[in-house]
Design a protein around this nucleic acid. Structure first.
Length: 715
RNA sequence: GCGCCCGUAGCUCAGCUGGAUAGAGCGACUGACUACGAAUCAGUAGGUCGGGAGUUCGAAUCUCUCCGGGCGCACCA
């Protein structure tokens, strides 16, 4: 609603300025006044024009207001302060618009359902239903250990952004890149083969056993969006629970990392050699070491998908580095890079014999402009003097593929089955019939801010190859890390050095096995919400209570990861993460439950309430006047959903929507205490109050769905 | 050395492309359940927006500088 009115007012003011002063403005700044006393929209445009027109701002504002006359949807305009132009809405008409914006079935359906592309009416984005094909890469955890809280932030940010893109009318492919041939996997392979001295057969048996006996077995083939957690103590016939494979690897990876540096100098040298020999065997493929790597990385990957599914996060495609290597993606990219002159062979200096690329110009100085014959010592090495390609090189090839510019494709195999679709994985020889991935118009890479430089290199390469449009639609969706507060680290039993205890936060480290595992946190959250639900929902059955507890726990976790803007470091603490009061997911869920209770108790429905509103004459009366300002503010916020969505997309910042949902819930709770709906004696006013609740319910449910948070039936 | 990010209430964070009296949650203190269920609400206390200079009619927001904290800058992935 807001967007449309803003456009209309901006247009009206622009044409007045054109007519009166012969000024052509790109756009008119419009803002929300600090208080409803000043109207619903305002512009400080007169201040800007004061110098140009050599007139007092107040005078300009008065002239503009006089010339504006009548604008549809607005009740009037006035000048305030030193020259603000304030606009007042025709509240009755605006309220009708807010009430009518709705999707086909806003109150029905599972809120946690995988978001398809909603009807255009829901997003209120006319004529922009098909915005093109976007590709979002997120999660991308090295498949050698359990996911931790840092990975959760990545996946939740990415998944939420996917939902926002889909809500706005984009076709979106979700990819989770799997580095199954990197050093991290090699390290765990070294651990299995050389620390634990296990054979291929033993490793295979160990993984099979863990998949059977660990919680992983319980998530397999589940039909529920959020699988039931497996209560370890219950079910006497269940086999003895055992740590899942990703937990096992978590410890082994940490042990191996330590092992590299814990021997004598000679031993350490040998161990390092072993490490790189193992890495190269894995990269090369076709040997037993590579087979071990494949087994482990696939088993751990499966666990990651299970963990993420608990949060309602699904993927469409899992491209793996092994296929990027063996399908010769790099060779194809290399040809293009040479042909376009992006890469050149260095003959002098420290990089002699390497194929290098000029780095992106630094913001401060152009720096990297190589004049002929001069050696750019700062250039980025893409192909080493021994002929092997670096990580950035492989990444360039992968991104050419993402945009459909590589001229090669993966093989595709089904890998994981979700309730409503399949997730595919790359393969040398895939299935004959498969969906097509890649060839997107816009891509978003959810990768932490430490990778800013390599990401900039890839963009630079694309631009250098002449793919300017693609480079412009390449977004490094960066975010800051999740760290632990020193107190939390101590609480977890880690040895925290004295000098670290006064720091604001301590970085999580997979290599050191230092961090909070994702599944542990989720389990802990569910246990906490379950205790609350058990205390409140005494007449509900076991399964019902468990389901509600899970919905609340996931809501709390997702909201926690979304409430911070991307570039603020989250200093993780159980106290904050396990909180269900104040600015949290459960607070918003609770508002939804409250509204549902009103309709249940009142023996009516939200749909009926909105239908009745249509028959209410003089709607404007109920949203005007001193006594109704708070209600009008609530309606106005309810009308902001698409505006907030667009803001989130424009800035790649889901936190704004999280904030919006909270503020709407907060204003509703205030309204709830001030106006008792079901005991209202004036039938017309009761209709209006019920419709108010219905609109807030609709808005909260749609917004929560976009955030990936379900609405429990009771709390 | 170069680059990026951060510094706002006791704590954790918002503050939209510069705009009207700087906001929220938590914590502290005071109140509100014969209930549309208090995972809630109302109220009080609490801020030199890290320091300084500049641009502007106007700066938490833009520029410069200094201070403090974090993270990147490999023929590692």
């Amino acid at each position: 609603m807001y967007l449309e009115l803003q456009k209309r007012l901006g247009g009206a003011i622009r044409s007045v300025l054109k007519e009166k002063y012969d000024l052509e403005l790109e756009s008119v700044p419009l803002e929300t006044p600090p208080d409803l006393r000043f109207g619903e929209l305002a512009t400080p445009i007169a201040f800007e024009l004061a110098r140009k027109l050599r007139k007092a701002p107040k005078m300009i504002a008065q002239e503009v207001v006089a010339a504006l006359g009548v604008v549809e949807g607005f009740a009037g305009f006035e000048v305030a302060g030193a020259g603000y132009i304030n606009a007042r809405l025709d509240r009755g008409a605006a309220a009708r618009v807010i009430a009518e914006v709705s999707d086909s079935h806003p109150f029905a359906g599972e809120a946690g359902e995988r978001m398809g592309r909603p009807a255009s009416a829901e997003t209120n984005l006319p004529a922009e239903q098909d915005r093109g094909h976007a590709l979002v890469e997120h999660t991308s955890i090295n498949p050698n250990k359990a996911a931790h809280i840092g990975h959760l932030r990545n996946a939740i940010l990415g998944d939420t952004f996917v939902r926002l893109l889909r809500a706005a009318g984009y076709k979106v492919d979700v990819q989770n890149y799997i580095d199954n041939t990197g050093v991290q996997v090699a390290d765990v392979v070294v651990g299995f083969l050389h620390l634990e001295h296990k054979s291929l057969a033993e490793i295979r048996a160990l993984i099979a056993d863990r998949e059977l006996r660990s919680r992983g077995a319980f998530y397999q083939g589940t039909t529920s969006v959020v699988p039931q957690t497996q209560p370890n103590q219950q079910g006497a016939s269940a086999p003895e629970a055992v740590e899942p494979i990703d937990y096992y690897c978590w410890d082994l990876y940490a042990r191996t990392s330590q092992w590299y540096t814990s021997g004598t100098n000679e031993e350490n040298e040998a161990r390092k050699r072993l490490r790189y020999d193992t890495l190269h065997a894995i990269e090369h493929g076709g040997n037993e070491t590579a087979e071990v790597a494949e087994l482990i990385s696939t088993a751990v990957l499966r666990r990651h998908l299970e963990t993420m599914l608990r949060l309602g996060i699904e993927y469409d495609f899992l491209p793996r580095e092994s296929e990027i290597l063996h399908l010769k993606f790099w060779e194809a990219a290399f040809e293009q890079l040479k042909k376009t002159g992006v890469l050149y062979k260095e003959t002098n200096g420290k990089n002699a014999g390497c194929w290098v690329m000029t780095r992106p110009a630094a913001a401060g100085r152009p720096g990297a402009e190589t004049t002929d014959g001069e050696t750019d010592e700062d250039a980025k090495v893409i192909v080493r003097s021994n002929g092997t390609v670096t990580y950035v090189g492989k990444d360039i090839a992968y991104h050419l593929w993402k945009f459909g510019l590589l001229g090669r494709d993966f093989g595709y195999k089904r890998f994981f089955t979700y309730p409503k679709h399949d997730c595919w994985i790359s393969a040398m020889e895939g299935e004959a019939v498969h969906p097509h991935f890649g060839g997107a118009q816009a891509i978003y890479n959810v990768i932490d801010s430490r990778q800013a430089d390599p990401q900039a290199n890839v963009i630079q390469a694309l631009r250098g190859m002449g793919h300017a449009a693609e480079a412009d639609h390449y977004t490094h969706f960066s975010y800051e890390m999740v760290a632990l507060t020193p107190r939390c680290a101590v609480e977890l039993g880690y040895d925290v050095p004295e000098e670290d205890r006064s720091r604001p936060y301590i970085e999580v480290s997979g290599r050191k096995g230092f961090g909070v595992k994702a599944d542990d946190l989720i389990d802990k959250l569910i246990a906490a919400t379950r205790a609350e639900v058990d205390a409140r929902q005494t007449s509900r059955d076991e399964a019902g209570r468990q389901r509600i507890a899970e919905q609340i726990a996931i809501g709390a976790l997702r909201y926690f990861m979304l409430k911070y803007t991307r570039n603020s470091v989250i200093a993780f603490d159980f106290k904050d993460a396990l909180s269900f009061e104040g600015e949290t997911g459960p607070y918003i869920q609770y508002a939804v439950v409250r509204i549902r209770n009103i309709f249940r108790k009142g023996g009516t429905t939200a749909e009926a309430a909105l239908a009745e509103l249509a028959g209410l004459a003089e709607l404007g009366l109920y949203v005007s006047g001193e006594a109704n300002e708070d209600i009008w503010a609530l309606w106005l916020r309810a009308g902001r959903r698409t505006q907030v969505l667009e803001q989130c997309l424009a800035t790649s910042e889901p936190a704004y929507l999280a904030k919006h949902a909270f503020q709407l819930a907060q204003e509703f709770n205030n309204f709830y205490h001030r106006h008792h709906i079901l005991t209202e004696e004036d039938p017309a006013r009761k209709t209006f109050l019920l419709a108010t609740a219905a609109i807030v319910l609709r808005e909260l449910m749609v917004t929560l769905t976009w955030l990936g948070i379900e609405s429990p039936e009771a709390m």
